[in-house]
Nucleic acid binder design. Structure first.
Lengths: 132, 132
DNA sequence: TATCTCTTTAGAATCATTATAAATTTAGAA
DNA sequence: TTCTAAATTTATAATGATTCTAAAGAGATA
């Protein structure tokens, strides 16, 4: 399967590469519009799916209504701020030992692990309790 | 806030307590119907939200379209079989040390961690490769 | 009893996403 | 180059989960 990067797909990919806040499909749409690329909704979804399948982009399902997308392909996890909705990345990997125990307990052949942490980000924490 | 368990809410809770497969709202609806309780859709969603807020039930967002619900309140994680969609539980807790590192790296005040593992369950694994 | 609040109900509305069908573009063959 | 087949984009309709709304019902309290 050779890569077929149409201008639409390239534009979507570039938006993701230039974003560091894990935009949703609607966010991507807006950013494309802002730069003069008014593609059809379906095209944006199509492109996101294509890029995801091509392994150029990751789809993040963090328990919110909408999926988010990320062009950072190194494996990593995420933290969501329960106050402002901001999403940050967690670079630390799960201990292999822990995964091993999980595989053993469940009797699954594990392929992927995703951790979603919830908490309050530094900014919101300060806002709420300036004495910090 | 005192607990107000109407008959509808009680029925929804009981369905969840008797289910061990993490049913979706639609599943709950079906099971209620099957036992003669034909509540309105809105009521089931309302009850699920109420029970979740009351801490009697957990809402699971495992990256599928629909939320699943679980009356097991002990903290635990989940494995999803990518072949058949089956969801099982993982009782092992994340190492506190790992969480500590994550909190430090991200500068978040962490409140909750949820791990979703993906893999192939024992049944599907055998089906696909009977030599095992 | 009268009133107030909470709940249920049916159905409409919303939101993210997918499907459809026609129009357009692209790539490769002739 | 010209033709044709396959892939893609587009606009729009459809879907599926969930929430909202407004009216009706139930319960509790004064």
């Amino acid at each position: 399967m050779k890569l077929n990067l149409t201008m639409q797909r390239k534009a979507v990919l570039e938006v993701l590469q230039q974003s560091h806040d894990h935009p949703t499909a609607a966010d991507v749409m807006d950013r494309l519009r802002a730069q003069g690329n008014a593609f059809a909704y379906g095209t944006v979804y199509n492109s996101l799916r294509y890029l995801t399948e091509a392994g150029l982009v990751k789809e993040l399902k963090l328990g919110e209504v909408a999926s988010r997308y990320d062009a950072r392909m190194e494996d990593h996890h995420h933290v969501v701020c329960t106050r402002c909705g901001r999403v940050d990345e967690v670079a630390i990997e799960l201990p292999a030992e822990w995964l091993g125990k999980a595989a053993q307990e469940t009797n699954y052949e594990l392929h992927h692990a995703s951790v979603v942490l919830e908490g309050v980000c530094a900014t919101c924490s300060v806002l709420n309790n300036p004495s910090k």
